[in-house]
Amino acid sequence: MIRRAAVLWDRVWFAPVSARMFRATRLILALQALWIILSRPDIPSLTSWPAAFFPASERMMYLRFGIVQGTTVFEWPLYALLHLLLILIVAGLRWRAVLFAAGLLLYHFAPFEEIIAGIPHTSFGGLTVSAVGLMLLSFVRQPGAEETSPQDRWPVVLIQLFFTFTYFFAFLAKLRWAGPGWFTASNMQFWALVNYGFSQPPLARALASSTLICWAAAIGTLLFEALSPLAVFSSRFRVLWVAAAVLFHLGIALTLNIAYTSTPLLLLFVDWDRVSDWLRSARSLRRSPVEAGS
């Protein structure tokens, strides 16, 4: 039994994988983080806000992320450095120190958006997976262009799994705070209508008006969230799950006005080896008539 578990563990984490998946993971994480950072130009200015926003009672939480009021003069150069590091990673620089520093700076800056209220929703700010993922990649050897190594698989798989926790833990949260009754049509109807009261999402009332669609949304959410880790381990299920994820985010944007800026990270689940092979064969097909004619 233990022997079988060990074999399974090895197959999941240490099966050989091409360097392309590793490089694609690094690029996707850096690009997505850069998009968020470019969209949050005022982040360092928070440290210039009045002292009332930095109560002594919360000092430990601020210190946990290295946030100190009045340090704005240091924060701007650090924020500029973060941009530079992410651009270097996108450009293909593979230095582990650069990956680590970018991840650590993301850890520092990500909570700025919400820290004055505690950090209730920083996980939804879009930098969670990138911050952890870039640090995680910095801990391992960066593979060369054409390598295939068992050592390169586990960081890719662990980052994918970490991303699916977003949904799986959201499922656990619903069970913990509301119980199985969360996944019912009447609760879907409530969330659609209360959000209509908050910010008038375009399809909130349409969802609330149909018990059938509310049930479909409730059961769909249950299955999508509860089964999310399977997407890491089953390539067949992954295709279905990614398609469901796109629908899920489109649905909650239209009915609840909730956006998820980590959605581009679904690209982490694309089989880039297969895409590369497909592109190569498409290119050679296009080239062959010309070659035949010449």
Binding site: Y107, A110, P111, I119, P120, H121, T122, S123, F124, T128, A131, V132, F165, T166, Y167, F169, A170, A173, K174, R176, W177, A178, W182, W191, L256, I258
Partner: peptide, 10 residues
């Protein structure tokens, strides 16, 4: 965070 509970709309 960054090891998060993902609690939203619960």
């Amino acid at each position: 965070w960054p090891f998060t509970a993902n609690t939203l709309a619960v």
